[in-house]
């Protein structure tokens, strides 16, 4: 049975940054926020908030977006409790998985603001996955355990 070995909860204080307001609403590069589940077989990025869930009125009113962010984040985290990894993965259409056997290499990078995982997957482009800075050490240990020789 698949086991969750580490959960790295998103530590952002607000929803992804919105850009421009009005009829031509555009959002920034970040479109979702994820809690990351490290299991003994894969990494699961489970959406706790997606900008697709915001209406144009929410985007126009920053406080409304913030309210929705807090509400959805807490609701999603309550849904994750007691669920199996496969169920967590399918709770939201934008959630995704990175099976360890498909990962070619992974870099744990500390940035000025936050940290990220740079994951190279076979047959795919490299992806950047934001991770909480406070869990950097634990994440690196888990990755070294399950991806020996692939952590740079």
């Amino acid at each position: 049975m698949e086991e969750i070995v580490l959960v790295a909860e998103d530590e952002s204080r607000g929803p992804p940054r919105m850009q421009s307001v009005g009829p031509g609403i555009r959002v920034g590069r970040e479109r979702a926020r994820y809690d990351i589940f490290f299991t003994d077989r894969r990494i699961i990025a489970a959406v706790i908030f997606s900008t697709a869930e915001l209406s144009k009125w929410d985007v126009a009113a920053a406080f409304q977006a913030m309210h929705k962010w807090l509400k959805l984040k807490n609701e999603r985290r309550a849904q994750f409790k007691g669920k199996m990894p496969e169920e967590i993965l399918h709770l939201h259409p934008e959630s995704f998985e990175l099976p360890y056997d498909r990962i070619q290499s992974v870099k744990v990078k500390k940035k000025l603001v936050g940290a990220k995982l740079e994951v190279e997957i076979e047959g795919e482009e490299k992806i950047d996955l934001p991770i909480p800075k406070s869990k950097l050490r634990e994440i690196e240990l888990v990755l070294r355990q399950y991806l020996p020789g692939k952590v740079k």
Binding site: R29, R31, H90, S95, F96, L98, E124, E125, I127
Partner: peptide
């Protein structure tokens, strides 16, 4: 078959 990351995460940055 696995649930792949969305394309916006793999775009050139």
């Amino acid at each position: 078959e696995w649930k792949r990351p969305p394309s916006y995460l793999t775009e050139k940055k």
